[in-house]
Design a protein around this nucleic acid. Sequence first.
DNA 1: GCATAATGTGTAACCGGTTACATATCAACT
DNA 2: AGTTGATATGTAACCGGTTACACATTATGC
Lengths: 327, 327
Amino acid sequence: MATIKHVAKRANVSVATVSRVMNNNGYVSAEAREAVERAIAELDYAPNRVARSLFKKTSGLIGLIMPDITNPFFPQLARAIEDVANQHGYQVVLCNTDEQLSKEQTYLVALQTMHVDGLIITTNHSDNPNYEKLELPMVALDRIVKPGIDAVISNGYEGGRLAAETLLSCGATKLAHIAGPKHLLTVRRRTDGFLDVAGDRLVGMTHSSFAFKEALTAAQTLFDEYWPFDGVFAANDVIAAAVLQEAVRRNVRVPEDLQVIGYDGIELGEMTSPPLTTIAQPIYEMGRRATERLLDLIEKKETAAKEILLPVTLTERQTTKRKGHDA
Amino acid sequence: MATIKHVAKRANVSVATVSRVMNNNGYVSAEAREAVERAIAELDYAPNRVARSLFKKTSGLIGLIMPDITNPFFPQLARAIEDVANQHGYQVVLCNTDEQLSKEQTYLVALQTMHVDGLIITTNHSDNPNYEKLELPMVALDRIVKPGIDAVISNGYEGGRLAAETLLSCGATKLAHIAGPKHLLTVRRRTDGFLDVAGDRLVGMTHSSFAFKEALTAAQTLFDEYWPFDGVFAANDVIAAAVLQEAVRRNVRVPEDLQVIGYDGIELGEMTSPPLTTIAQPIYEMGRRATERLLDLIEKKETAAKEILLPVTLTERQTTKRKGHDA
DNA sequence: GCATAATGTGTAACCGGTTACATATCAACT
DNA sequence: AGTTGATATGTAACCGGTTACACATTATGC
């Protein structure tokens, strides 16, 4: 690999001059600039980012910490983050923590010692003290870490309300709910919104993680203990898919006998049979906004908002009846 | 952040000695070692990887180039890669190229200038000249780039055969197939294997990308043009999910009237109704093997195998009848 | 008891960039 | 003509590690 010295020699200038034309700062004569540019082209030179990084204490890297990229909600987020980062010349380092504090800790020091410029965190240990001492720009995504830390989230409470309102206005009268993991504040809000609207029309509720197998078990429990009901709101689309599958197994027709609404708006919802009605978060948008915010933080554009709340929307597919039909 | 100089000063030794205890090489007296270790602990010192990287020309980073992490086959792969890399102290940089040569090119120079130690490529431009001039360890995953480059793939041809054999032994007599993108050699092999066994029992075939929307269109075309058939093999699980959905739409019962087999063995297959029978690739294992191979290459353990071929297995769920029932 | 090898430690060069500072030239202004 | 400021460029220090090399000191062999 060619270095700046090779370029300097070839262009008959000093390394300082080469550096000046690369970074487009300081005074450089037209001839010198031209000579340097020719040398760069001829040698196919690209500056060593490691060397630059060492001096500038900036790496062009951002760390992305998520529980598990295998959970179908995250790839879209990762994609958005990667897209925006890339457009601005940054690369992203992927870290799966399985929500284990020890892994998180290991990654944190690894990322720190490699001088990442910022962090996006979709993992939540609100109680994790590690983040605080970290003097790094960071934004929480779909999570709320701490008052002081920027967050990008969607309106879970309204989403939960919307789910209940939709179910009711589509004619459901006996509602059931499968809530998500209790330690996720953003997920609890969906449940809160749903329950507030459902009121005493709620006939049953259970909990599940976002793993499909567990969701299936939870769905079975729901049917075993609370059937009959005619409208289910699941805390995410994976759980909703489990409800759908369990309904099929029990010969419960969807949406005729039972309407189902999921949450997230991941692609999976299009692939179930019937396709899933869901409360869609603007997933890509969330990733985009979080990254833009982070880059602003990194580049010291002191932007105002500390918490960005995005709206959710109803994506009507075929697990609900047409709205207002028999409401 | 504490630097090696701070540690040296505090331990009353030179930076060389500190470096020696950090790397556990050279001679260090017991007292010196102890003093250094104490200083490290007290200062909470972690060596700057950027500085180390500059001198050693090694970064502890591996580049992961994939078409689109959003495609449900890739997250598992990424997870496996990340796990293994992490266990060995490496981090992974995620790159989505959308199979666009220009993006690939941009990433390649970015990764190169940041001195990544190796590359895992799940993207395929067999014709891409960029990879050749790259003096970097790399392994192709689920792709075949070039004879000289290591590859980890699963046995697509056998998988295709297995799909056909299964369909036939479960009583299907009129087979149909939706093939995948033509430019993917590993995917074409599935089709080859399937066709070789199907022979003249094939009644129809069409093509599709791996995008669900396109797969739905392809499924419709298949039904429109070739119905009736009683066994479908789809080139991947996403396409199979589309076939399932289209079958439901047309009131074709699965598996009674139509049996369906997918390919890949992604989690989606468990979530469809009914759950999908599929030819499962050992996805996690593939990612693991590719990464282990790459690390061997990086660390110059000249290992033999140039192409690692992994077996596929049949995952019987509920879109096929019980085997041998009516064969 | 002396040559030799093993052990222990510090100094400084090096990796490949960036930039403060010194120096030089030249045009403009008084 | 002399001062001043803008333009242009090179030298060398610096970022934070690693390691070749020089130099001591101690242990071992004959």
